[in-house]
Computed example of a mutant assay.
Amino acid sequence: MKTIALVVMTVMAMNVYGQNKTDISLMRKGSGTQSSEVASETGDLYSQMEHHGPAVENEWIGLRLYFDHKGSIDVYNKEKPGLELAAAGWYPTVEQQNEGWGADYYKVGSTVGLGGIRLWDGQKVLSLTPVTMRTARVRKEANQSYMEMLSEGIPYCGDTIDVLVRVTVFSGMREAKVEAFAFSSHPVQFYTGVNYHKGMQTKQGDDYICTWGIHPEDVAASQLNIGAGIIFNPADFASIAKGPKQYEMVSKPTKYLETWITSSCEREAELNSMEALVKYLEDYSK
């Protein structure tokens, strides 16, 4: 985790006067117009939004937050570095994919996906629902972009709390930062992790968890081996266990949690195997 902090500072310094290789997207279906903020008292605009919620991207991946109770983070994988959301959206055509564009190869289902945030009440997982209001925001800055979801009025352990989840991507950096903030009178326990499917390889290190293999997704033109990793501070977690569909990570009582996530695919030039992904993640521990 110390390495990530140093890399962020270096990348930010290098990109102050460079090109911002990040982007944002938040649009209602059929509007053709980008928004900076969208809110709903029901907390569910999943079917009304392009890519089902806010999205961000850097050169290597796109990420989206589902605008509903799940709080899941989904991944758009790319074969080559570049920005694609503005031109191709989350679902490029078959022709575009055959020309080397990325696609939605990652399958989240009912899980947290890659680093999504829920709550733990001491006995079970709680979705970020019901709410009195859910608000999605996106912002593009000099060398980074972020999306965030504020869920207000969530019942939790006899209290009513607000939870903000923010996902930030950086120019020149493969990792995205996931932050969870609890606005509450007492600390809470967050629940996060990384999902996997039957037949996939998985590995848990001291401060990372990664997966590699085929996701049973049917919206892409083909299926590729996809890698996913979450990097964390072990001292932040009360328990980490491999569940039937995802690694289940329960934080210690807190009002703030930070993890880092990354993803890759077999057609990339660099992180195109489980071995390459593991080595990359282990380098952060040194």
Rank of each mutant, 00 (worst) to 15 (best):
T3M: 10
T3P: 00
L6F: 09
T10A: 13
V11D: 05
V11K: 15
M12S: 14
N15M: 06
N15W: 03
G18H: 09
N20E: 05
I24P: 07
S25F: 14
L26F: 08
K29C: 08
T33P: 02
S35C: 13
S36N: 15
V38H: 08
V38G: 04
V38F: 10
S40Y: 12
T42L: 11
Q48F: 12
A55W: 05
A55G: 13
V56R: 00
V56E: 08
I61A: 04
G62F: 10
L63F: 11
L65E: 08
D68H: 09
D68P: 10
Y76E: 09
E79M: 14
P81S: 06
L83T: 04
E84S: 12
E84D: 07
E84M: 05
L85W: 15
W90G: 02
Y91V: 12
E95M: 10
Q96C: 06
Q97I: 14
N98H: 10
G100W: 12
G102A: 13
S110E: 12
G115P: 11
R118P: 07
L119S: 02
D121H: 01
D121L: 00
K124P: 11
T129G: 05
T132K: 12
T135Q: 12
A136W: 07
V138I: 14
K140A: 04
K140F: 01
A142S: 13
A142P: 10
Q144M: 10
S145A: 15
M147D: 10
M147A: 15
M149L: 14
L150H: 08
S151E: 06
S151R: 06
S151D: 12
C157Y: 00
G158R: 00
T160G: 02
T160K: 10
S171C: 07
M173F: 11
V178T: 06
A180E: 03
A180T: 06
A182K: 01
F183K: 06
S185L: 03
S185G: 03
H186F: 01
V194N: 05
Q201C: 03
T202M: 03
K203R: 15
G205A: 06
G205N: 01
G213C: 12
I214G: 00
E217G: 02
S222W: 13
Q223F: 03
N225T: 02
N225M: 13
I226R: 09
I231P: 05
F232K: 02
F232M: 01
N233G: 02
A235G: 06
S239A: 10
I240T: 11
A241D: 14
K245R: 12
K245T: 12
Y247E: 04
E248M: 06
E248K: 05
M249I: 05
M249W: 02
K255E: 01
E258P: 02
I261Q: 04
T262D: 01
S263G: 09
S264P: 09
E268T: 07
E270F: 04
L271F: 09
S273Y: 03
S273P: 07
S273G: 07
M274R: 04
M274D: 07
V278G: 02
Y280S: 03
Y280I: 01
